[in-house]
Structure formats: structure tokens, C-alpha cells
Design a protein around this nucleic acid. Structure first.
Lengths: 124, 124
DNA sequence: ATAAGACCTGACATCAATGTGAGCATCAAG
DNA sequence: CTTGATGCTCACATTGATGTCAGGTCTTAT
């Protein structure tokens, strides 16, 4: 499929899809005329990339991880090196502490919201 | 205290403390010579602000929230308006979905790390 | 062949918090 | 009074993913 369809099917902008290629997160083939041609598997890959971006990973790290993912089509599926594994552990710790932060802030907002609800009975 | 001490005591850069004032998150008094003078309570305030930044809130929203916080010195302590409460609920939902994202990604990283650990027994 | 729609590259803009540096003023201690 | 540390303002840079625009090319249906 071409880039427009992939964009439609994933909800990710065309601009971002081109960026993903630039960052080596995807490697679409090209038509004779130079247009990007994506496989079906690209849909899942894009969603996965978004997932990792959402977790605050940077594109460089994602590029390191991707070859280690369970490839749906039996791709190369490299093993994570010990070095990569170590940096993933660091990412995981970062994620954990981010979650802890979020939970604290969530509780904080809860306090405000509930005291507002007490004060203002117009909230149904 | 002056800005340098507040910076040292909170771990927040002088630059950021000035920014917080610009964004109306703090209102230090000024000495005759024009230097910022912070109260003891400023330390907690800075930490709170950082906490909210860490949760992904923007300065405008934080500025809205701060007057509604339990003031340690019995400050004005405004009530959240219904409108503000509503946007806080939206923030809370955003936080919740961010947490969900993080948990998913965390699980993903776990898979890679543990499969690397299996493959590479040099991890003690 | 032609026209419309989709795509290409390249460049510059955006957001938000923070970094950085210049040039000058203030404060505290000698 | 002088000096060194600290503070002031103003302005521009940075980061990283994404938006946007311009000018040109490809594809496909007529």
C-alpha cells in the first residue's frame, strides 16, 4: 500500500510516517517512480512505534528495539544484546518512576476535584 | 531567601524559577534593589509545581490549580470552579490513559529484556 | 494525452520548558 | 570603596516529533 492508505489505516500522519523512515524505524520499498510501498505488516509496526513513542522512548532507542521484536512474518528477530538489555532496564525504571509521578499527581487532582464537587452541587 | 538558595534547596534551576514567576506560578516579593525574595513556603510550592509538570500539565493549567491547593499558611485557598473541575477531570483521564500506555510499553520491554536474559547467561 | 489526486523532497515553523550568554546592577564582607 | 559573588533582563538556542507550505513528479482513470 502507499503512504496515504497507511496513514488512514493507522491514524498516523503522512509526515510522521516519512519521519519514521528517516529515523530507520521502517524501510518501505519504492515503486519505479520513487513512491513508498508498504507491506501489510507495516500497519502493526506503525502502531507499535506509536506505542513506544507514547512511553517516552526516543526514536533512536526504538530503532534499537525493533529488530528484537517478535516478528509476525518470521523476520530476522535478533536477540537483544546485553548492552541493549541494560538500557531497556533503564527505560523501564524511567517508566516506573514516571508512573509513580503520575499516580501522585492524579491523587492531587482528585483532592481538588472532589472538594470542588463538595462545594458546587451543580455537578451531576 | 534569594533565588540561588531556593534553586539549591529544590534542585530546580534559577532559569526555571524565573520562568515560574513569568508564568505566574509564583509571586516572590522584591528587595529594594529589585532582587527576588522568596518565603519558606516557596520551597514546597516549587516542589509541587515540579510534581505537576512531571504529570504533563502545562503551566497555564498549573496556574489555575495552584490557588485551589491546600495552603500551608492558610492562604486564600480558593475553591475550584465547576469549569476548572471539569478540565481537571479531563487531565485526570489523560493521566490515566498515559499510565495505561506506560504499562503496556513496560510489558513490552519486559519481554525483550527477559528473552535477552535467557539468551545471554552473562547477566548475573 | 490529459487532468486530478496522491506523492516526492526540502525547508522552515511549532510547542514548552529549559539552557546559555551578554552586559549591567546589587549585595555583603573586607 | 572595592571586590567577588550573586542577581537582573533580554534574547537567542535547544530538543523531538510533528505541522505546513512550495514546487515538482507519479499514477490512474478518462
Amino acid at each position: 500500500m502507499r503512504i496515504g492508505e497507511l496513514s488512514r489505516r493507522t491514524g498516523v500522519s503522512v509526515r510522521s510516517l516519512r519521519y519514521y523512515e528517516e529515523q530507520q524505524l521502517m524501510a518501505p520499498t519504492r515503486t519505479a517512480g520513487g513512491q513508498r510501498e508498504y507491506s501489510e505488516a507495516a500497519v502493526d509496526r506503525v502502531i507499535l512505534v506509536q506505542q513506544l513513542f507514547a512511553a517516552g522512548l526516543h526514536s533512536v532507542r526504538i530503532a534499537e528495539i525493533l529488530p528484537c521484536m517478535r516478528a509476525p512474518e518470521g523476520g530476522p528477530n535478533e536477540r537483544a544484546t546485553a548492552r541493549l538489555a541494560q538500557s531497556l532496564v533503564a527505560e523501564r525504571e524511567r517508566i516506573d518512576s514516571t508512573i509513580a509521578d503520575l499516580l501522585r499527581s492524579r491523587a492531587l487532582l482528585d483532592d481538588i476535584v472532589s472538594s470542588a464537587a463538595l462545594a458546587d452541587s451543580s455537578i451531576d
